[in-house]
Design a protein around this nucleic acid. Structure first.
Lengths: 231, 231
DNA sequence: AAGCTAATACTCGATTTCGAGTAATCGAGA
DNA sequence: TCTCGATTACTCGAAATCGAGTATTAGCTT
């Protein structure tokens, strides 16, 4: 809700990492990778260093020493400040307690699904399901491995949650594909029909919608309810 | 997969809109709003105009007329080009067929859940569930309304999918909260214990992990498997 | 002992993204 | 008929984001 001074989720990971011990930026990045947290929070070097600078300017972290070994680039070690701990706690509180609006790719795609022929959409959804199944299998295998090592679940629940989301997406895609295949999507048999008319007669979808009686032999009560801008 | 010349999802919506008919940017924005597509694709004016400019430079759309009514700002009407139609089709193909890595807020939060006391985490998850239930109820009511108007489902499946994701999130949160409440999260009773020790003895969580035998009376086999950087 | 790859540790500038601001007009009510 | 809030239509510059590039060293092989 509150606009943070440094809003990049990577900044949250930096605060979380420095909350455990002081480190230099590159060390933070390797730690995030070795713990697999980079699967949950996008890590990229450009952002890492600019985010660290921004956090320092905001007083959430401070440089505690700069070491130079041989001719290698300097490593500046940062520590979290009290303000930084407070910010991290506040941020985590928000991330866990208050859902923020999120935009998913599939949602964007679904918003324009009528633009494709139903059969093509089914094809693509099936392709997606295959890819999702592969991702789910990979993560599940990783979980199996961690469980076999008795590595506590609390350290990888974020990955478990990811599987949950992927599975929901997979199941929705499968259900939708099925409904389209059987034309079981309420009130949208006209979708297929429209695409066939467009291909046959060389007209546009809006032509069909403008004159449903002529082209489809039926009238749409909902068309009168739709605001003119929406068309 | 492919790096698009104009990558903002809003550009996809612009192409989709102009695919139906030529419009000026502001008109696109009102149409997206009246159709509720702005719930699936983030719409913001700054991005809209810069995205339109970028699409024009890339040859995906072109200005077809500039009208000025009275003293109002000029309205430049854009039309989609053949290249633009191809780009839209390619983009929609990708959005539907190929899942891209996505980062969710809750996932980021879960990655740092051990930083809070278990009881606090349960509290926050419960708060989240209440908020999610409200969002789900609101969307469900909207769907009920559209169904009563016989407005075809195909025009709002993206919203249906959103409910699916929200529900998955809700259910995961509920399950996790339950498992934490009953300490039923495999191998992580030590999590609660550690927070209690930290509060009592003024030590840090890493101190506990460094000497589990001393503080918790048990040894952790997985600790030996963890790479040193990960600590 | 030379050569090569991988890892270390960052830098830089070009885009992108954003959100607040502006300025005119319309329409409903006092 | 005057006013005031909503709508129309867009602009602008600051800030964020990114990803490719760089330079050094360690370690392994041949």
């Amino acid at each position: 809700m509150v606009k943070r001074k440094v809003g990049n989720p990577l900044a949250f990971a930096v605060l979380g990492s420095l909350g455990e011990r002081s480190m230099h930026p590159y060390e933070i990045s390797t730690m995030l990778k070795s713990r697999g947290k980079d699967g949950s929070i996008k890590l990229n070097y450009g952002s890492l260093y600019s985010v660290v600078t921004a956090l320092e300017k905001a007083g959430f972290i401070e440089a505690v020493e700069t070491v130079r070994e041989g001719n290698r680039p300097e490593r500046t070690v940062y520590a979290i400040t009290e303000a930084g701990r407070a910010e991290f706690a506040d941020w985590l509180t928000e991330l866990l307690g208050s859902p923020e609006k999120e935009y998913s790719q599939l949602e964007a795609g679904l918003a324009y699904v009528p633009a494709f022929h139903p059969d093509r959409v089914v094809e693509l959804l099936e392709q997606r399901i295959v890819a999702l199944d592969a991702q789910i299998a990979e993560l599940t295998a990783a979980h199996e491995f961690m469980r076999s090592k008795e590595f506590p679940r609390i350290f990888w629940i974020e990955s478990e949650f990811r599987v949950e989301l992927l599975t929901a997406e997979r199941n929705y895609a499968e259900r939708l594909a099925g409904e389209i295949r059987t034309d079981g999507l309420e009130g949208s048999a006209f979708w297929r029909k429209t695409h066939e008319l467009v291909a046959e007669l060389g007209i546009t979808p809006s032509d069909v919608l403008k004159n449903p009686v002529k082209y489809l032999g039926v009238d749409f009560p909902w068309l009168k309810e739709v605001t003119p801008e929406a068309l």
